[in-house]
Design a protein around this nucleic acid. Sequence first.
RNA 1: GUGGGCGUAGCUCAGUCGGUUAGAGCGUCAGGUUGUGGCCCUGAAGGCCGGGGGUUCGAGUCCCCUCGUUCACCCCA
Length: 417
Amino acid sequence: MPEFQTSPGMRDVLPPESARWRRFVRTFDETVSAAGYGQLVPPLLEDIGVFHRVGEATDVVSKEMYDFVDKGERHVALRPEQTASVCRAFVQHRPVTPWKVWYAGPNFRYEKPQRGRYRQFDQVGIEVLGSQDPLLDVEVIALGWRFFQQLGLRQVSLVVNSLGEPDDRAAFVVALRTYFEANLTRLTPESRLTLARNPLRVLDSKRSEDADVIAAAPRIANFHSESARRSLSAVCAGLGALEIPFTVDDRLVRGLDYYRLTTFEFVGRTLDSVQNALGGGGRYDGLVEDLGGPATPGVGFAIGLDRTLLACDDEGVFDAPEERVDVFVIDTTGGMNALLLTDQLRAQGIRTDRAYENRSMKSQMKAADRSGAAIAVIVGPDEVATGTVVVRPLRDGAEQSTVSRSELTDTLRKALS
RNA sequence: GUGGGCGUAGCUCAGUCGGUUAGAGCGUCAGGUUGUGGCCCUGAAGGCCGGGGGUUCGAGUCCCCUCGUUCACCCCA
């Protein structure tokens, strides 16, 4: 074991997997940019108060934050998610609404790592601030759905719910607490602890022993005010019009406290683990106000990169792209010719690599083969003497040829097309 | 934070009942061919057996601690 390794829950992403990550973000960029979303790049670090507004009762904030006091005595934290940063940025810069942004990057939560869960994990997401149109909720959900389609995923389910207006939600929580407390003995010890912190979250228990109690629990739908009902049915109608399949599950409870009205989750059906949520989001109409801004509605989602890629693995889609050069330069005269030729070809937009340390031709040919290049360009003493190079195809049976240096670029262009 | 599994070469793994110098395949490098890759053959480099302590004449092997990793719980993407 080396003396230094990555910290627990942190890891290096090496090629070719890193190329897949880049393609993932690029695909997301293309999907949402085409819908009028601009990229926001918030800092990794924020005043810890920004995240406290996310919900003191959540584990994410209460025990999983990477926080510390910096040299200027500021209490800061690595972001555990990015929605709060987006809202903070909105309050700070006051852009015109609706403000449609997307983001991609790492978040940090101090948890025990396991499959599909790391302490540093990447998400992509979008947020829209300044509109409470339920058809915007539909647009947001649809963009997530279209993104999964772009990746090639088919085994994804969309689950939708509404947590109601704040008053609805509060009344529901009270009813829920009353109900569960009356049935305490039928709850697992774990769920009893959850109940004390946040009764809503008990609905999210995946323990089979809790299933019966939960099935008979009060339903949020019965607490929906007229406006909440109208909003949910507009969302359902919109999704139906777009022919996006979904189910309404009134036990869907999201992990963060700021949600109200529409919530939704994308679930990977191939992931048999409990951790099968690929992404999710919802409406958070009070968050901007909580952060000191004007009352501003908001809606958005975040998608976890790791789990989504695991789902892609399961379905055999969205493989890591092969990264290869077009041309590999072999120089047996010391390396200066390779230096000049690679620089010249790269300037012409031809992807070019070479070998170093003046190794044997055999060794350099092996490196050329490994590089995946379609063509080797060979320079030895004879070529230097005549001002030529050898162009040797590596992938098909074509004959090699000798060309003058001035014709090299054209010859390669023709051969590569 | 809690519990279980696993830590031997760059990677995947053997290693018998505790026994002397720790192995294989793949990969890397070199040679077989002093100007030509893949296939084949030959050779080489590469190990604090995760770390520390203990038991023993003797520990990769047994015991304890620790670190890492993995799976599950909790929670979440």
